[in-house]
């Protein structure tokens, strides 16, 4: 039986652990089910509030205008959707998509509480197989989500398929600090995250996974290569805070 499904024999990383490919999505789902309720609070704690600034900065690179269609992939608690919604205006639209139901629920509630602008839709979607027609979006944004995707290449191909010609994809993700000294300092700092997770959420394991998954994520150049391999014609990589985070902007210039 196992031979009939080759995926069951393949493994992938879940943090530092190797797990069957078929199990990673549910394991990641478990992590986000656990942290969804206080996800924003924990983001503020571990990033010392800088995540808000970085998100705003990322949106500035989107070149989104009124009337555009935007996909906020792995949109979680809706930070990006709330930033994009006023930019696209009533003639455009934002789709908040996430594979995790708990995160979508929290995001939807938060957007409604913020006085939903009426141009945000919600979708429970797997980034590897986006349930949208070809060339649906002017801009796709995935922030702190790609490292949790089991098959990143499939996700990037799926993003390319749904990106309009002339559109772009923005990938904001933790990355590799360029300076070894900064890398060491960041490494020490990130060891505190499980302790913070324990204190705030009584859940150290989820934040241990966060730290491990960051270490396992491809560095800037590798991810740039993956974006280009998915079909995007150009890719710019912008380091944030010395490479602790990076924004990759992939452009689909032609069919």
């Amino acid at each position: 039986m196992n031979d009939s499904n080759p995926q069951q024999n393949q493994t992938t990383h879940f943090g530092y652990r190797q797990v069957p490919v078929t199990e990673k999505a549910s394991l990641v789902g478990g992590v986000f089910h656990s942290v969804a309720r206080k996800y924003d609070l924990m983001n503020d704690v571990v990033s010392l509030g800088t995540h808000r600034l970085i998100k705003r900065f990322t949106v500035e690179l989107s070149a989104v205008r009124p009337g555009h269609q935007v996909l906020d992939l792995a949109g979680g608690t809706g930070d990006f959707s709330l930033l994009f919604a006023p930019l696209v205006g009533p003639s455009g639209g934002v789709v908040l998509a996430d594979i995790n139901e708990s995160m979508v629920r929290v995001g939807r509630d938060r957007i409604i509480d913020a006085g939903s602008p009426g141009n945000i839709a919600f979708s429970l979607a797997n980034a590897e197989a986006l349930p949208f027609a070809d060339q649906s979006f002017d801009c796709l944004c995935i922030a702190y989500g790609l490292r949790n995707v089991t098959d990143k290449d499939a996700a990037l191909r799926s993003m390319y398929r749904t990106c309009k010609v002339g559109g772009r994809v923005l990938i904001l993700e933790f990355s590799t600090p360029r300076s070894p000294l900064l890398g060491k300092a960041y490494d020490l700092y990130s060891r505190l995250w499980p302790l913070a997770g324990k204190a705030v959420l009584n859940d150290a394991a989820s934040y241990r996974y966060l730290v491990e998954s960051i270490r396992m994520h491809p560095d800037q150049e590798t991810l740039k290569g993956m974006v280009l391999a998915a079909g995007f014609q150009r890719c710019e990589c912008i380091d944030i805070m010395g490479g602790i985070c990076a924004i990759h902007v992939g452009y689909r210039d032609q069919d």
Binding site: T50, L53, I54, R56, F57, E60, I238, I240, M241
Partner: peptide, 8 residues
């Protein structure tokens, strides 16, 4: 780009 973030 950290400078741009600071400016931001």
């Amino acid at each position: 780009m950290s400078l741009a973030l600071l400016q931001s």
